[in-house]
Structures are given as structure tokens and as C-alpha cells.
Nucleic acid binder design. Structure first.
Length: 489
DNA sequence: CGCTGCGGGCAGC
DNA sequence: GCTGCCCGCAGCG
């Protein structure tokens, strides 16, 4: 891990603290021209992005193509066909905040479709029969966190704005797995019932009635949300607890809520330990590593619903769970192994381990978003941050100067300031932080996927100018590119 | 049936 | 004008 170890001796002002490739290049989703020619690599897909982060994915990345997110994001019309905007729907929880047998809480993925979501909210908590409640996301100045996707030739540019102020819902892949499982089970149980019915034609009493009743109650996939997760790459001790069985079977039996399948899923996939997370988390642009959606209540916007706070301190939140989930779509096994090796614990404890040990700023003892004075630039750039529809050129005039004047001082770039938004002035435990990230990433093997070594960082920032909006003609503006040796740092 | 993206339209600022 | 948000529609699986 070259970057971390070397830059760790320097202040946080180092751009090296920015770990994603997308964060290393100065760009904003609204820029008329996105960096193209200087793209030497791409970020690996991040399912659980959080904070003001940017990534540049390969246009061939399937997940990026699908604009996937672990968060339940719905399409939002921003009247800009160039940029796809999505806003977070939050998370569905039990209105009674009931505690599941394993001590965690229900956190369902809100249905994306409005109608489906309304239906979903009419259903009852599978654990306590209480009503379900949708916790809206207000992580972006009181509005839902927004994700922006923009395809530009070879790359898919991703930018997120806002910090999720609610627990993580079940990931999309988890939901899909569960739904398909439910369907399978429904059909199989239906067949089984038919069979049993035929076998008991004589009218003998059997339990099909009760079963049916149960099924009707458990009709929605939501009711199985926390039960199973067969494909989730979780620690062997948990995974093996049901990998050789049919996890869906158990989900049909309410008794199984107390069974082993539930904890396996609960602890490793969905449940979020709401550990205070550093506001600087996204400063490092490594949501994949510290993509916790958990924040202390004071971290929330003032207009957040007061009752949402209980969520923050409830239930386990694994900060790295998202990484696991995300990687499942790729090749996560190795990376998860890395985690195991690092912490020597079960994956279920990764977040905890990371929180308490690996990450010094997961102690909740740090400055927060609202406890700090925003930088002048940050405030003026707020408009840039929230600009989602039409490109606003004014804020970028200064950035152009910056690009050419001091390409190294990325912190001074408006784009990076807006990136940090309100939390920019937080005091960071830079050194340790970066070292820790280095360790983590190294163990994860991410340095190859996401973070280029310093010598690999070649950027042609002078090419970053604003001309016409035709995507294809960008190369014409490219003059020369200069090499950017970070070893100087 | 639900997810996704698109786009019209409206309201607030 | 920008933004958030609602709505309906269509394509897809």
C-alpha cells in the first residue's frame, strides 16, 4: 500500500487521502466535459456508497450499467437526459423497533415502485406484527441522498451527494435472492400442498389449512427479509449453518425466526451496528471501506425526523458489510477472505472490529458536520452540490484556474470542497487514518482495483476545459498531459 | 408484479 | 431557473 504509508506522514490536505480513482480527478457530474483521456483506470464498483463521493467506473461494468446501489434508490426526474439522477428512499423498519431474536432489527428495502411501496408499508412486521414504517432519507440537506450517473464514452461517472442518515436496507441483490426464493418456495409448497391434499383425499385432517394461513400471512417477500441469505459471502461458521440446507424452507416456518438461519443473515448482511462514524469518512472517498450508514444523531440534518434517531443507535451496523455485499456481484470471496485475515473474526464482526480497532475514528469522538464552521468555499459551492439538472458554469470558472494553477492542491478545488461539504473542516486523525486504510485496502486487495500507486497516477488536467457539450469531441481539446508523481509527497 | 428509465407537470424558492 | 417530487407510461424480466 504505497499511497497510505507514504502520505500518512503528511497532513490531511494531501490529495492522497482520496482513495477512489474518481476522487482523484477533478470533475463534477455536471461538468460539460468529463475527464476522458486521462482515464487510466476505473474504480471497482461500490454498492454502498455513502457521502459525497465520486467514482469512475468502466462503461462495461455491469453494475454500473445498471446504476445499481445497495441503497434503495429511485429514479428522479432531473430534466437532464444526460445525467441519471436517483434519490434514496430510505429504509423500512418495524414501527415498534422490535428486536429480532438475534438482537438486530428489521431493515427492509423499500420498494422502488410507488405502488409497491405503499403496499409494502401496509404489511406487518414479520417479527412482531407491528406496522412497518418507512424512514425517509434526509441525508442531503434534509433531502434524500442523491446519486448521479452519467455515461460518457468509455466511463460511467458516478457521483453521490449526501450522507445516508438511516440504516441500510437490504441490498437489492439480497432482496432479489429472497424474492426468488419466496417464489420458489411458494410454488414448491403449493405443489406439496396439492400432493398432500391428494394424498389426504379421504378428508383426514392435516396441517395444510394452517400452512395456508401462514403463507397468506407471510405473503410478501418482505416478511422473509431477514431470514435467509444463502449467497451472502459470510463467515463460514455462519454461512455453513445454512448453506447446505434450504434456507427458504425455514423462512416459512415462523418458528424458524428463532432458528439458526435468521441470525446468520441478520448478523452478516442486513443488520447494521449503528456505530458513530466519522464525518470524514467520505472525505476519503472510500465508501466501500467505510460505507457505514450510521451516524450519531447529531450528524443528522436538523430537519430530520426526531424519531429517526433511535435508529441510529439501534442494531448492528457493519461498516464493511456493504463491501461484502457489493463484492458478491463480482468476486468477493477473496476480498472477504482478506477481511477475515485482517480481523481474525467472523465477517459479522468486521464492522465492529473495524470500528473499534482498525479505525481510530470510529469512536464517535470527533467533530461533526454541524459542529464545525463550514469553509467559505464550501458554502459558496453548496449550489454546485445541489445542482443536478442544468449545468452551472459559474462555479467552475474558479476551478478552471485551480486546475491549471495548482493541480496538486486538490483540496482547494471547488469540486473537492463541495465534496466534503459541511464536514470539510472536521479534524481528522490523518496519519493513523490513512495508515489504517492502507492496511485495510491492502488486505482487501483493493489497491489493485481502485487505488493506483502513486507512480501510476497520470492526469492530464490541462485537458480539463469547458467547450462544447459534445461528448465525443473532448479529445480534441486535450493538449498534453503531465505526469503526476506522487512520490514527491 | 416490480424495477427501471423517461419525461411532463407542478410547486417552492 | 433550479430543484424536488409527483405522476403516468413503456420496456423488461
Amino acid at each position: 500500500m504505497v499511497i497510505m504509508s507514504k502520505s500518512s506522514a503528511n497532513s490531511f490536505e494531501d490529495s492522497d487521502c482520496i482513495c477512489s480513482y474518481g476522487m482523484k480527478l477533478p470533475w463534477d457530474i455536471n461538468d460539460p466535459k468529463l475527464p476522458q483521456q486521462e482515464l487510466k483506470q476505473f474504480d471497482s464498483f461500490q454498492e454502498w456508497t455513502d457521502g459525497y463521493v465520486r467514482f469512475i467506473y468502466s462503461a462495461e461494468d455491469k453494475n454500473a450499467q445498471r446504476h445499481l446501489s445497495g441503497w434503495a434508490m429511485r429514479n428522479t426526474n432531473n430534466h437532464n437526459c444526460q445525467i441519471l439522477k436517483k434519490s434514496c428512499l430510505g429504509v423500512v423498519v418495524c414501527s415498534q423497533s422490535c428486536v429480532l431474536p438475534d438482537g438486530t432489527k428489521m431493515q427492509l428495502r423499500p420498494a422502488i415502485c410507488d405502488k409497491a411501496r405503499q403496499k409494502q408499508q401496509k404489511k406487518l412486521c414479520s417479527n412482531c406484527n407491528a406496522a412497518l414504517e418507512l424512514i425517509p432519507c434526509r441525508g442531503h440537506s434534509g433531502y434524500p441522498v442523491t446519486n448521479f450517473w452519467r455515461l460518457d464514452c468509455k466511463a460511467i461517472f458516478f457521483q453521490a451527494k449526501g450522507v445516508h442518515d438511516h440504516p441500510r436496507p437490504e441490498s437489492k441483490s439480497e432482496t432479489e435472492v429472497r424474492r426468488s426464493a419466496v417464489k420458489r418456495q411458494m410454488s414448491s409448497s403449493h405443489l406439496a400442498q396439492k400432493k398432500r391434499f391428494l394424498e389426504s383425499e379421504a378428508g383426514r385432517y392435516h396441517d395444510s389449512g394452517g400452512h395456508m394461513h401462514h403463507l397468506s400471512y407471510m405473503e410478501g417477500p418482505e416478511h422473509f427479509s431477514l431470514i435467509t441469505e444463502p449467497s451472502f459471502p459470510i463467515p463460514p461458521q455462519h454461512y455453513s449453518s445454512f448453506q447446505n440446507t434450504d434456507p427458504y424452507k425455514a423462512s416459512y416456518d415462523s418458528v424458524s425466526f428463532d432458528g439458526e438461519a435468521l441470525p446468520a443473515f441478520q448478523k452478516c448482511s442486513n443488520p447494521r451496528l449503528y456505530m458513530p462514524r466519522p464525518p470524514c469518512g467520505y472525505e476519503f472517498a472510500v465508501p466501500g471501506y467505510i460505507s457505514s450508514s450510521s451516524y450519531p444523531s447529531f450528524y443528522k440534518d436538523s430537519n430530520s425526523p426526531p424519531d429517526a434517531d433511535h435508529v441510529h443507535l439501534n442494531g448492528p451496523q457493519q461498516n464493511f458489510g456493504g463491501l461484502n455485499v457489493s463484492d458478491r456481484n463480482f468476486d468477493s470471496t477473496i476480498k472477504n477472505h482478506g477481511w477475515k485475515q485482517i480481523f481474525g473474526k467472523t465477517g459479522c464482526d468486521y464492522g465492529q472490529a473495524q470500528t473499534n480497532a482498525a479505525h481510530p475514528y470510529y469512536n464517535g469522538d470527533y467533530s461533526c458536520r454541524y459542529g464545525n464552521t463550514p469553509s467559505p468555499t464550501a458554502s459558496t459551492l453548496q449550489t454546485v452540490i445541489t445542482t443536478t439538472t442544468k449545468v452551472s458554469y459559474q462555479p467552475y470558472k474558479s476551478s478552471m484556474v485551480k486546475y491549471s494553477d495548482n493541480i496538486y492542491d486538490i483540496k482547494n478545488l471547488p469540486n473537492y470542497n463541495h465534496m466534503t461539504d459541511n464536514t470539510a473542516e472536521t479534524i481528522f486523525p490523518e496519519v493513523k487514518t490513512q495508515e489504517d486504510f492502507g492496511v485495510i485496502r491492502s488486505a482487501l486487495g483493493y489497491e489493485q482495483d481502485i487505488v493506483p500507486t502513486k507512480s501510476e497516477r497520470v492526469e492530464s488536467l490541462d485537458a480539463y476545459r469547458y467547450g462544447g457539450c459534445t461528448p465525443g469531441n473532448y479529445s480534441e481539446h486535450v493538449g498534453h498531459s503531465f505526469r503526476y508523481e506522487n512520490n514527491e509527497y
